[in-house]
């Protein structure tokens, strides 16, 4: 068996790759935004919320962080319809990504909040702010600034992790590679190209997020 590499098919199939890239980016973007919101809500519930609420986010965070993403995905897509809760491949993929990122960002946000000096809370309340206002102005914004790099890395991890959503027929970049592989029988070439694309996307995303970070958090006293 003398294997000849062949990239001649790329010209015919590049729209498939483009569509895959678009869906991967779309999923990553929406999942990151919603996931961070979930994370903030959990972090709030855990650190500032009423006592009866606190075990809930803890259970959620521990459960998600200690099980593989692909199992979460299969459970949502294949398992939940049994309970009458049916989602399309894309919806299930997005939900799984939000749920996953939510748990990780909750921990990141919490770490950022805990780094807030105690005196700042008191300073906030003495200015007549209520709990939620203190949380927002005194705790959250500086915390977000502190944890922006960690959140950025997590967003990239989620994008790379999203490669498995192809398993439930969501048509992301990996799906594109698989689809081409089964049409051209050029497995190695298809995976090689998509791997290179993921790498470029990861590097680009890191730049973009760092850029956004320096835009929304202009150089203030960074502690």
């Amino acid at each position: 068996m003398h294997y000849q590499f062949d990239f001649g098919w790329v010209a015919d199939y590049y729209p498939v790759f483009l569509k895959g890239i678009w869906i991967t980016l779309e999923l990553t973007f929406v999942a990151t935004v919603l996931g961070v919101l979930v994370g903030i809500a959990c972090a709030w519930a855990r650190t500032q919320g009423p006592a009866w609420l606190r075990p809930l986010p803890i259970a959620y965070i521990e459960l998600i962080r200690n099980t593989p993403f692909i199992i979460q995905l299969f459970f949502i897509f294949f398992g939940l319809p049994g309970l009458g809760f049916s989602l399309s491949g894309m919806e299930a993929a997005l939900l799984a990504m939000v749920v996953n990122l939510g748990a990780y960002s909750a921990e990141i946000v919490r770490a950022g909040i805990q780094a807030t000096p105690r005196g700042q809370f008191e300073a906030g309340s003495s200015l007549g702010m209520n709990r939620l206002q203190v949380f927002r102005h005194v705790v959250l914004v500086p915390a977000l600034q502190r944890i922006w790099p960690a959140l950025s890395s997590q967003a990239i991890i989620v994008m790379l992790g999203s490669a498995v959503v192809s398993q439930i027929a969501a048509e992301d970049l990996t799906f594109a590679a698989n689809y081409i592989q089964s049409r051209t029988f050029r497995a190695f070439e298809a995976y090689f190209i998509s791997t290179a694309i993921y790498l470029l996307l990861a590097i680009a995303l890191r730049y973009v997020l760092a850029g956004i970070g320096s835009l929304i958090f202009p150089r203030r006293a960074v502690r």
Binding site: I156, L160, G161, S162, A163, V164, T174, A177, A187, F188, Y191, F192, S194, T195, Y198, L199, A202, I203
Partner: peptide
């Protein structure tokens, strides 16, 4: 390289490559 690409792709490439 290894942190910037999906583990799934690394597995595919190891397996078929």
């Amino acid at each position: 390289l290894f942190q910037g690409t999906p583990l799934l792709m690394q597995l595919f490439l190891a397996f078929f490559g």
